[in-house]
Protein backbone atom coordinates (compact mmCIF):
# COMPACT_ATOMS: atom_id res chain seq x y z
CA UNK A 1 0.00 0.00 0.00
CA UNK A 2 1.48 3.21 -1.04
CA UNK A 3 1.10 6.53 0.57
CA UNK A 4 0.15 8.01 -2.77
CA UNK A 5 -3.17 6.14 -2.78
CA UNK A 6 -3.90 7.77 0.52
CA UNK A 7 -4.06 11.11 -1.14
CA UNK A 8 -5.37 9.97 -4.48
CA UNK A 9 -8.54 8.41 -3.22
CA UNK A 10 -10.13 11.60 -2.17
CA UNK A 11 -9.28 13.92 -4.95
CA UNK A 12 -10.23 11.50 -7.66
CA UNK A 13 -13.30 9.81 -6.42
CA UNK A 14 -14.84 12.40 -4.20
CA UNK A 15 -14.94 15.36 -6.55
CA UNK A 16 -18.00 17.47 -6.18
CA UNK A 17 -19.06 17.64 -9.76
CA UNK A 18 -17.29 17.99 -13.05
CA UNK A 19 -15.20 21.10 -13.01
CA UNK A 20 -15.54 23.32 -16.01
CA UNK A 21 -13.95 21.63 -18.95
CA UNK A 22 -13.45 18.26 -17.29
CA UNK A 23 -16.89 16.71 -17.44
CA UNK A 24 -17.81 13.15 -16.69
CA UNK A 25 -16.59 11.16 -19.57
CA UNK A 26 -18.05 9.35 -21.32
CA UNK A 27 -20.97 8.73 -19.01
CA UNK A 28 -22.91 10.60 -16.38
CA UNK A 29 -26.06 8.71 -15.48
CA UNK A 30 -28.99 10.87 -14.52
CA UNK A 31 -32.72 10.82 -14.36
CA UNK A 32 -35.72 13.02 -15.00
CA UNK A 33 -39.06 12.17 -13.40
CA UNK A 34 -42.18 13.85 -14.70
CA UNK A 35 -44.51 14.22 -11.74
CA UNK A 36 -47.34 15.29 -14.02
CA UNK A 37 -47.22 11.90 -15.67
CA UNK A 38 -46.56 9.91 -12.50
CA UNK A 39 -49.80 8.42 -11.24
CA UNK A 40 -48.39 7.04 -8.02
CA UNK A 41 -49.25 3.46 -8.98
CA UNK A 42 -46.27 1.78 -7.30
CA UNK A 43 -45.26 -0.29 -10.33
CA UNK A 44 -41.73 1.13 -10.18
CA UNK A 45 -41.44 0.20 -6.55
CA UNK A 46 -42.49 -3.41 -7.09
CA UNK A 47 -40.24 -3.66 -10.14
CA UNK A 48 -37.39 -2.53 -7.93
CA UNK A 49 -38.16 -5.30 -5.44
CA UNK A 50 -38.05 -7.78 -8.29
CA UNK A 51 -34.85 -6.50 -9.85
CA UNK A 52 -32.77 -5.72 -6.81
CA UNK A 53 -33.54 -8.55 -4.41
CA UNK A 54 -35.21 -6.31 -1.88
CA UNK A 55 -36.49 -8.19 1.14
CA UNK A 56 -40.13 -8.03 2.15
CA UNK A 57 -39.85 -7.28 5.83
CA UNK A 58 -43.41 -8.03 6.89
CA UNK A 59 -45.96 -6.11 8.86
CA UNK A 60 -44.19 -5.95 12.19
CA UNK A 61 -40.91 -4.64 10.84
CA UNK A 62 -42.65 -2.26 8.50
CA UNK A 63 -44.43 -0.91 11.55
CA UNK A 64 -41.02 -0.31 13.09
CA UNK A 65 -40.00 1.74 10.08
CA UNK A 66 -37.64 -0.94 8.81
CA UNK A 67 -39.06 -1.25 5.29
CA UNK A 68 -36.49 -1.64 2.52
CA UNK A 69 -38.18 0.05 -0.43
CA UNK A 70 -35.42 1.76 -2.37
CA UNK A 71 -38.08 3.39 -4.46
CA UNK A 72 -40.83 4.77 -2.28
CA UNK A 73 -43.91 6.58 -3.52
CA UNK A 74 -44.81 9.49 -1.33
CA UNK A 75 -48.29 10.94 -1.37
CA UNK A 76 -48.74 14.57 -0.40
CA UNK A 77 -51.89 16.60 0.07
CA UNK A 78 -52.34 20.28 -0.62
CA UNK A 79 -52.14 22.16 2.64
CA UNK A 80 -54.76 24.83 2.34
CA UNK A 81 -57.41 23.56 4.68
CA UNK A 82 -60.00 22.65 2.06
CA UNK A 83 -62.59 20.14 3.15
CA UNK A 84 -61.76 17.80 0.31
CA UNK A 85 -58.54 17.32 -1.61
CA UNK A 86 -60.34 18.31 -4.79
CA UNK A 87 -57.08 18.91 -6.61
CA UNK A 88 -56.11 15.31 -6.06
CA UNK A 89 -52.94 14.22 -4.35
CA UNK A 90 -49.34 14.82 -5.31
CA UNK A 91 -47.12 11.82 -5.83
CA UNK A 92 -43.38 11.73 -5.57
CA UNK A 93 -41.23 8.71 -6.32
CA UNK A 94 -38.31 9.16 -3.95
CA UNK A 95 -35.13 7.22 -4.47
CA UNK A 96 -31.43 7.83 -3.99
CA UNK A 97 -30.70 11.11 -5.74
CA UNK A 98 -27.18 9.97 -6.68
CA UNK A 99 -25.86 13.33 -5.54
CA UNK A 100 -22.69 14.61 -7.14
CA UNK A 101 -21.51 16.05 -3.84
CA UNK A 102 -23.14 13.39 -1.77
CA UNK A 103 -23.34 14.13 1.95
CA UNK A 104 -23.21 10.39 2.58
CA UNK A 105 -19.88 9.86 0.88
CA UNK A 106 -17.67 12.11 2.92
CA UNK A 107 -18.76 10.76 6.26
CA UNK A 108 -18.36 7.02 5.75
CA UNK A 109 -15.44 5.99 7.97
CA UNK A 110 -14.37 3.17 5.70
CA UNK A 111 -15.13 4.68 2.31
CA UNK A 112 -17.85 2.15 1.54
CA UNK A 113 -19.84 4.69 -0.39
CA UNK A 114 -18.08 6.45 -3.21
CA UNK A 115 -18.54 8.29 -6.41
CA UNK A 116 -17.94 6.31 -9.56
CA UNK A 117 -16.42 7.90 -12.64
CA UNK A 118 -19.78 7.63 -14.39
CA UNK A 119 -21.44 9.72 -11.74
CA UNK A 120 -23.05 7.14 -9.55
CA UNK A 121 -23.10 7.14 -5.81
CA UNK A 122 -21.98 3.59 -5.23
CA UNK A 123 -22.36 1.44 -2.19
CA UNK A 124 -19.84 -1.32 -1.52
CA UNK A 125 -21.57 -3.88 0.65
CA UNK A 126 -18.38 -5.79 1.37
CA UNK A 127 -16.70 -2.73 2.74
CA UNK A 128 -19.60 -1.43 4.81
CA UNK A 129 -19.21 -1.88 8.55
CA UNK A 130 -22.63 -0.49 9.37
CA UNK A 131 -21.85 2.75 11.15
CA UNK A 132 -24.93 4.25 9.49
CA UNK A 133 -23.32 7.66 9.36
CA UNK A 134 -24.19 7.92 5.67
CA UNK A 135 -27.89 7.60 6.33
CA UNK A 136 -27.67 10.00 9.25
CA UNK A 137 -26.26 12.60 6.90
CA UNK A 138 -28.63 11.92 4.01
CA UNK A 139 -31.14 14.74 3.68
CA UNK A 140 -33.58 12.57 1.73
CA UNK A 141 -33.37 9.53 3.99
CA UNK A 142 -33.20 7.14 1.07
CA UNK A 143 -30.62 4.81 2.49
CA UNK A 144 -31.87 1.57 3.97
CA UNK A 145 -30.08 -0.51 6.52
CA UNK A 146 -30.18 -4.26 6.92
CA UNK A 147 -31.34 -4.36 10.49
CA UNK A 148 -31.78 -8.11 10.26
CA UNK A 149 -30.31 -10.94 8.29
CA UNK A 150 -33.10 -11.12 5.76
CA UNK A 151 -31.78 -14.08 3.77
CA UNK A 152 -32.21 -16.24 6.85
CA UNK A 153 -35.36 -14.60 8.16
CA UNK A 154 -38.52 -16.68 7.96
CA UNK A 155 -40.77 -15.97 5.01
CA UNK A 156 -38.52 -13.43 3.36
CA UNK A 157 -37.17 -15.81 0.76
CA UNK A 158 -38.54 -19.21 1.69
CA UNK A 159 -37.76 -22.15 -0.56
CA UNK A 160 -38.75 -21.56 -4.17
CA UNK A 161 -39.12 -17.83 -3.57
CA UNK A 162 -35.32 -17.68 -3.36
CA UNK A 163 -35.11 -18.94 -6.91
CA UNK A 164 -36.37 -15.59 -8.09
CA UNK A 165 -33.35 -13.75 -6.70
CA UNK A 166 -31.45 -11.87 -9.37
CA UNK A 167 -28.00 -13.44 -9.63
CA UNK A 168 -26.57 -10.15 -10.88
CA UNK A 169 -27.36 -8.45 -7.60
CA UNK A 170 -25.88 -9.25 -4.21
CA UNK A 171 -28.24 -10.51 -1.56
CA UNK A 172 -27.33 -8.32 1.36
CA UNK A 173 -26.74 -9.73 4.79
CA UNK A 174 -27.36 -8.03 8.08
CA UNK A 175 -25.46 -4.97 9.12
CA UNK A 176 -24.88 -3.27 5.79
CA UNK A 177 -26.39 -0.19 4.25
CA UNK A 178 -28.07 -0.32 0.88
CA UNK A 179 -29.90 2.01 -1.43
CA UNK A 180 -30.96 2.61 -4.99
CA UNK A 181 -28.05 1.95 -7.35
CA UNK A 182 -29.69 3.18 -10.55
CA UNK A 183 -29.67 -0.56 -11.37
CA UNK A 184 -25.92 -0.62 -11.56
CA UNK A 185 -25.97 -4.24 -12.73
CA UNK A 186 -27.83 -3.13 -15.85
CA UNK A 187 -25.58 -0.11 -16.30
CA UNK A 188 -22.42 -2.16 -16.10
CA UNK A 189 -23.87 -4.79 -18.40
CA UNK A 190 -24.71 -2.19 -21.02
CA UNK A 191 -21.42 -0.35 -20.61
CA UNK A 192 -19.44 -3.52 -21.05
CA UNK A 193 -21.49 -4.62 -24.02
CA UNK A 194 -21.00 -1.25 -25.64
CA UNK A 195 -17.30 -1.31 -24.93
CA UNK A 196 -16.81 -4.72 -26.47
CA UNK A 197 -18.56 -3.39 -29.55
CA UNK A 198 -16.45 -0.29 -29.58
CA UNK A 199 -19.22 2.20 -29.07
CA UNK A 200 -21.04 4.03 -26.31
CA UNK A 201 -24.29 2.97 -24.70
CA UNK A 202 -27.15 4.12 -26.91
CA UNK A 203 -30.09 6.11 -25.69
CA UNK A 204 -32.69 3.90 -27.29
CA UNK A 205 -33.80 1.62 -24.54
CA UNK A 206 -30.62 -0.42 -24.61
CA UNK A 207 -30.26 0.54 -20.98
CA UNK A 208 -33.25 1.10 -18.77
CA UNK A 209 -33.55 0.99 -15.02
CA UNK A 210 -36.13 -1.44 -13.68
CA UNK A 211 -38.39 1.36 -12.46
CA UNK A 212 -38.18 3.16 -15.77
CA UNK A 213 -38.91 0.03 -17.71
CA UNK A 214 -42.00 -0.78 -15.70
CA UNK A 215 -43.44 2.74 -15.36
CA UNK A 216 -46.81 2.57 -17.14
CA UNK A 217 -46.85 6.31 -17.79
CA UNK A 218 -43.19 6.52 -18.85
CA UNK A 219 -42.74 9.23 -16.27
CA UNK A 220 -39.16 8.20 -15.61
CA UNK A 221 -36.43 8.84 -18.11
CA UNK A 222 -32.90 7.74 -17.48
CA UNK A 223 -29.77 8.13 -19.49
CA UNK A 224 -26.41 9.65 -20.08
CA UNK A 225 -26.41 13.33 -19.22
CA UNK A 226 -23.19 13.87 -21.11
CA UNK A 227 -24.66 12.58 -24.35
CA UNK A 228 -26.28 15.58 -26.07
CA UNK A 229 -28.58 13.22 -27.97
CA UNK A 230 -30.01 11.56 -24.89
CA UNK A 231 -33.51 12.33 -23.77
CA UNK A 232 -32.34 13.07 -20.27
CA UNK A 233 -29.81 15.56 -21.51
CA UNK A 234 -32.42 17.29 -23.65
CA UNK A 235 -34.88 17.38 -20.80
CA UNK A 236 -32.37 18.90 -18.39
CA UNK A 237 -31.39 21.44 -21.02
CA UNK A 238 -34.94 22.34 -21.87
CA UNK A 239 -35.70 22.83 -18.20
CA UNK A 240 -32.52 24.84 -17.73
CA UNK A 241 -31.39 22.74 -14.81
CA UNK A 242 -27.63 22.56 -14.50
CA UNK A 243 -26.09 19.68 -12.65
CA UNK A 244 -23.34 21.74 -11.10
CA UNK A 245 -25.39 24.64 -9.80
CA UNK A 246 -27.14 24.78 -6.49
CA UNK A 247 -29.16 27.77 -7.55
CA UNK A 248 -30.51 27.72 -11.07
CA UNK A 249 -30.40 30.89 -13.09
CA UNK A 250 -34.00 30.49 -14.18
CA UNK A 251 -35.21 30.56 -10.57
CA UNK A 252 -33.84 34.03 -10.16
CA UNK A 253 -36.02 35.38 -12.93
CA UNK A 254 -38.58 37.87 -11.79
CA UNK A 255 -42.03 36.38 -11.44
CA UNK A 256 -40.68 32.86 -11.44
CA UNK A 257 -40.25 30.55 -14.35
CA UNK A 258 -42.67 28.59 -16.46
CA UNK A 259 -40.26 25.69 -16.55
CA UNK A 260 -41.15 22.73 -14.42
CA UNK A 261 -37.75 21.23 -13.76
CA UNK A 262 -36.42 21.36 -10.21
CA UNK A 263 -34.29 19.35 -7.87
CA UNK A 264 -35.11 18.67 -4.27
CA UNK A 265 -32.94 20.36 -1.64
CA UNK A 266 -30.76 22.07 -4.18
CA UNK A 267 -29.94 24.67 -1.52
CA UNK A 268 -28.05 22.06 0.48
CA UNK A 269 -25.77 21.78 -2.54
CA UNK A 270 -25.65 18.00 -2.85
CA UNK A 271 -26.11 18.43 -6.65
CA UNK A 272 -28.64 15.62 -7.07
CA UNK A 273 -28.69 13.68 -10.33
CA UNK A 274 -32.45 13.44 -10.45
CA UNK A 275 -34.49 16.27 -11.87
CA UNK A 276 -38.19 16.29 -11.16
CA UNK A 277 -40.76 18.01 -13.34
CA UNK A 278 -43.46 19.73 -11.35
CA UNK A 279 -46.96 18.37 -11.22
CA UNK A 280 -49.41 20.51 -13.16
CA UNK A 281 -53.03 21.34 -12.46
CA UNK A 282 -55.53 22.88 -14.84
CA UNK A 283 -56.42 26.44 -13.88
CA UNK A 284 -59.76 26.51 -15.63
CA UNK A 285 -61.49 23.84 -13.66
Amino acid sequence: MSISTLFENYSEFRHRHPDGDVPHNPYKWAMAIDLDACSGCNACSVACYAENNLPVVGKEKFAHGQAMHWMRIERYWDQDGREFPDRGARYLPMLCQQCEAAPCETVCPVGATNHTPDGLNSQIYNRCIGSRYCSSNCPYKVRYFNWYDYPTTDNVWPAEMNMQLNPDVTVRSKGVMEKCTFCIQRIRGAEIDAKTQGRLVRDDGELQTACQQACPTSAISFGNLVDPESKVHKQWRAQQVDLDKHEQVKDEEEGGTDLRGYRIYEFLAPYPSIMYLERVRESEI
Binding site: D258, R260, V280
Partner: peptide, 16 residues
Protein backbone atom coordinates in the same frame (compact mmCIF):
# COMPACT_ATOMS: atom_id res chain seq x y z
CA UNK B 1 -40.65 18.95 -2.29
CA UNK B 2 -43.58 18.50 -4.64
CA UNK B 3 -44.52 21.93 -5.91
CA UNK B 4 -47.49 22.42 -8.13
CA UNK B 5 -47.77 24.54 -11.23
CA UNK B 6 -51.02 25.80 -12.67
CA UNK B 7 -51.56 25.45 -16.39
CA UNK B 8 -51.93 29.18 -16.85
CA UNK B 9 -48.32 29.41 -15.82
CA UNK B 10 -46.83 26.22 -17.16
CA UNK B 11 -45.54 26.07 -20.66
CA UNK B 12 -45.38 22.47 -21.65
CA UNK B 13 -44.79 23.16 -25.29
CA UNK B 14 -41.08 23.72 -24.74
CA UNK B 15 -40.71 20.32 -23.23
CA UNK B 16 -39.03 17.27 -24.59
Amino acid sequence: IVPLMATDKANLSKEI
